[in-house]
Amino acid sequence: MPLPRLIPCLDVAAGRVVKGVRFEGLRDVGDAVELGAAYSDAGADELVFLDIKATLEERASLVQLVRRVAERLAIPFTVGGGVRAVDDAAALLDAGADKVSVNSAALDRPELIAELAGRLGSQAVVVAIDVSAGEVYSHAGTRPTGREVTAWALEAEQRGAGEVLLTSIDADGTREGYDLPVTRAVAAAVTIPVIASGGAGTAAHVAEALGVAQAALLASILHENPARLVSLREELAALGVPLRDAA
């Protein structure tokens, strides 16, 4: 297996990194390319840029952002938010993204996963799943779908997904640790890589997640602070997690 991956996640709108609680009261905290570059320098294995507005007007600025990131960075990155059709995804990959992530659009129309994999290859298709108490939620975690999480993860794999990005709504933002039972259950159900997300507060939490999943998404634990990634990597190395030498 490749080395465990640390993947900082940046919430973006109109090319800027934004912060807010439940998408309300968004605050601009910097340029997305600059923060992405700083994370890359700090040893990020990949990045995720999540367009949290994902409106039609936002689409053009997202493609522009992707191009700027690709011109600046030499590590892989995923773009999510608002991908509803194969052409949306192809435009992002043409602009230099390595992967796209889909969530609600895939739940609305599961055939989208196969369409994306057919055009872009499975390695470019991340299916993001938001879960609470074993049930999949759509629309940024607001709508229960009635789908059981391991069944949906397996269906996504069978339709051509290359990775699952699994976010526990229950753990997200608590900083009390990843939801290991649900992560373990999904990792056991599929044979594609799983990225754990939601709940990281300490290096020990991240190490636990990397014992179950192939990668860990890092959001609030980093506080938009690349120096925290440097110290986190040191703490993980001390805990015996094998990370790449990013020099």
Binding site: S122, P193, Q214, A215
Partner: peptide, 10 residues
């Protein structure tokens, strides 16, 4: 292993 094989490897 898991396929696709994705990530950094020596």
């Amino acid at each position: 292993g898991r396929v696709p094989r994705i990530g950094w490897a020596p």
